[in-house]
Design a protein around this nucleic acid. Structure first.
Length: 296
RNA sequence: GCGGAUGUAACUCAGUUGGUAGAGUGUUGGCCUGAAAAGCCAAAGUCAGGGGUUCAAUUCCCCUCAUCCGCA
């Protein structure tokens, strides 16, 4: 089974920097596990590491689609597995999108049902109550676990039931893993993390995030999924004259902090993650991990 | 010093004709399987402090304190 190293953690925790050092040291390459860095042109706001700072380390799953192209969890999973199979080098899966990481590490069995735009649009017109009622008819177990107000998930569950003919709740299992992952977590005390986030947002503004967002917004519009990314969405509100620039910047900070909190919640429950405080600690873990010969 | 106003969640403020309280924002905890930087759920207050009236006070009365505004 292919061994992979996962470097995860909340935004602004310093994963990228650590990952570069480690990938360099162990002669590996990096696969991004970041749902927004896949978009071309979204550079400053997603804190993409510029080419010249990658120190020759190969990066995958960055800049793979244009912002107006659709992308999804299932596609991410497929692509990553195929990348891993192609190379003998040690992959470093680096990012903060917990679900994407999980899809790879646990080989999630994602329902084989792509988005059905027509159906979604029709369901979008229904009230929460109507959606819930419909889901109860199709899949009681799923209806019980999804909150009535969470339209996004209600609609998705109905979509899966209708297009596959099988219950959504029966199609969300893990499969036999196909990678052997060492998960390393990077974080910082909450207060420190929040300060870093605020500072980084100011930095992004200085580096030209406003211009970058404006260009993308003018070209693709503000309502597509990719533009819901933190930074772009809030500046979109500014360019549409809904809020002031100052409010937009504050909102970016706030939303980033909230995002970091959600990331921590997600990662916290996975007990396989080794939370480290320093690079040598990570190196030691990796050395032991690659030395170990898995039982056949 | 005198007169007036205000004091309710971390912040800004509602509210209870007396039956121990809400909203928005923030904070914290949680959920998550083809939109995930998305979407969603939940929690926390001795109603400034003390006394009085009352079966019952955050609400009425008195005192104290704090803040603000006038007049000196």
């Amino acid at each position: 089974m292919q061994k992979i190293i996962v470097i995860l953690g909340p935004t602004a925790s310093g994963k990228t920097h650590l990952a570069i050092n480690l990938a360099k040291k162990f002669e590996g390459y990096i696969i991004s596990a970041d749902s927004r860095q896949i978009y071309r042109g979204m550079d400053i706001g997603t804190d993409k590491l510029p080419e010249k700072e990658r120190r020759g380390v190969e990066h995958r799953m960055i800049d793979i689609v244009d912002p107006n192209q659709e992308f999804s969890l299932a596609q991410y999973q497929k692509r990553v597995f195929s990348i891993i199979k192609q190379s003998d080098k040690l992959p470093f899966l680096v990012g903060g999108t917990g679900l994407y990481i999980k899809a790879v590490v646990d080989n999630l069995d994602i329902p084989k049902s792509g988005p059905d735009k027509v159906l979604r649009k029709k369901l979008e017109e229904k009230s929460n109550e109507e959606l819930l009622k419909e889901l109860i008819k199709l899949d009681v177990a799923a209806a019980r676990t999804i909150d009535e107000n969470n339209r996004r998930r209600l609609i998705r569950a109905i979509e899966v039931c209708r297009t596959t003919g099988h219950k959504f709740s029966k199609q969300t299992s893990k499969q036999k893993p196909i990678v052997n992952a060492l998960q390393i977590g990077v974080s910082a005390p909450r207060e420190e993390l929040y300060q870093k986030i605020d500072r980084r947002v100011d930095e992004m503004i200085k580096e030209g995030l406003i211009e970058e967002a404006k260009k993308l917004g003018e070209r693709y519009g503000w309502d597509i999924p990719s533009m819901s990314a933190i930074g772009y969405r809030q500046l979109g509100l500014y360019f549409q004259k809904r809020i002031t620039l100052k409010e937009a910047v504050e909102l970016i900070k706030k939303d980033t902090r909230n995002y970091a909190r959600r990331q921590l919640t997600w990662f916290r429950k996975d007990e396989r993650i080794h939370w480290i405080k320093s690079q040598p600690e990570a190196e030691k873990l990796i050395k032991n991990f690659i030395k170990k010969i898995p039982r056949a």
